[in-house]
Simulated assay, not measured.
Amino acid sequence: MTTGGVEEKNKKKKTACVTGGNGYIAAALIKVLLEKGYAVKTTVRNPDDRAKNSHLKVLQALGPLEVYRADLDAEGSFDDAVAGCDYAFLIAAPVNLTSDNPEKDQIEPSLRGILNVMMSCVKSGTVRRVVLTSSAGVVCIRPLEGDSHVLDEESWSNLDYVTAEKPPIWGYVVSKVLVEKEALRSAQENDISMVSLCPVLIVGASPVSKVYTSVPAALSLLSGDEAAFEMLKCIEKTYGGVQVVDLDDLCRAQLFVAETETASGRYVCCGFNTTVVEMARSGHLLEKPRVCLSSTKLVREGFEFKVKTLDDTYDGLIKYGKTLGILPW
């Protein structure tokens, strides 16, 4: 009689904390982790809000999922959620794109929040790696002349340029740059392994029933939503193109950089680079991207994107849009 089955049964599940469990990205990552056999602990500001958290109840059918109350502004509130975890995926972040005072409403809360969560990771004594989900906004918002720019992890958005030009999402960009640098400083000071992922425009189906920005923007050419289409054009103007990654690929990349011991530093997460014109196959905007974001580092280390074309992206996205009511037909 072999003991392999008994050993496998007794082997402790890996445990991951995912902050911001009622968000679009976090909910999808929780689903992937549970399907991979992880035990998951997630945080939300108000566990009693059934409307925002109903998808977590559904996800609990997939595996062990515990929901904790935590607030980025409340020092120590992430301690219980992070305690005993092997990995911490930091996704929760303040998002206030319409504030008249981004310094007060976006930047300062973001910095307080990242330091709060990082200290919980330090106190846990168990976290092998922190994975920070950042944004391509930390890479490519900088003065660039002409076309055919290829940017990677070596590039940082220029905050002097951002604060001078003040694009519509300038406060968000500044907060993301400062948060990533502050998280890295904290990790180095406290001897914690940390990597950051910088995803581009994220599209794809998530367990949540409400989404903002990326999915409505990507579907605006079909939905006719003028405000969402203006957002898509704003993304192209600000980023020098429309860089896209499928949500499932992003979640796989998050898990990949967590589990790959040699992973380090920053990773751009971009499935492909396109433009509004290519998405619409008509119009008078950019015909080709001025800026392409390169995920060569991620691919070189062994990751493979499953979704690499617009057609592949829209196959699943249209179905999700119908489910959400963004597309009525």
Rank of each mutant, 00 (worst) to 15 (best):
M1W: 04
G4H: 08
E8W: 06
K9V: 10
C17P: 12
C17K: 04
G20T: 12
N22G: 06
A28E: 13
E35D: 15
K36G: 14
A39Y: 01
V40M: 05
T43C: 03
P47H: 08
A51K: 07
V58E: 15
G63Q: 03
P64D: 14
L65C: 07
D71W: 04
G76F: 00
S77H: 00
S77W: 00
V82L: 09
D86A: 07
I91S: 12
I91Q: 11
A92T: 06
P102T: 13
D105F: 00
Q106R: 00
E108T: 09
G113H: 04
I114K: 01
S134F: 02
R142E: 09
R142W: 00
G146K: 02
H149N: 10
P167V: 02
P167N: 06
W170A: 10
V173M: 06
V174K: 05
V177Y: 09
K181Y: 04
K181P: 08
A183K: 00
A187N: 07
E189M: 04
D191T: 02
D191I: 01
I192Y: 04
S193W: 05
M194I: 10
S196E: 14
C198D: 14
P199R: 00
I202T: 09
I202F: 02
A205H: 11
V208P: 13
S214D: 15
S220N: 06
L221Q: 12
L222E: 15
G224T: 12
A228N: 15
I235S: 09
V242D: 08
Q243I: 05
D246M: 01
D246E: 07
D246Q: 00
A253C: 05
V257G: 07
A258P: 10
E261M: 07
G265M: 05
R266E: 13
R266Q: 11
V268T: 09
G271Q: 09
T275L: 06
M279A: 10
G283W: 00
H284K: 13
V291Q: 11
S294T: 01
K297I: 12
L298S: 06
G302S: 04
F305L: 07
K308R: 11
K308C: 10
L310C: 08
D312P: 05
L317W: 01
L317V: 08
L317G: 07
W329I: 10
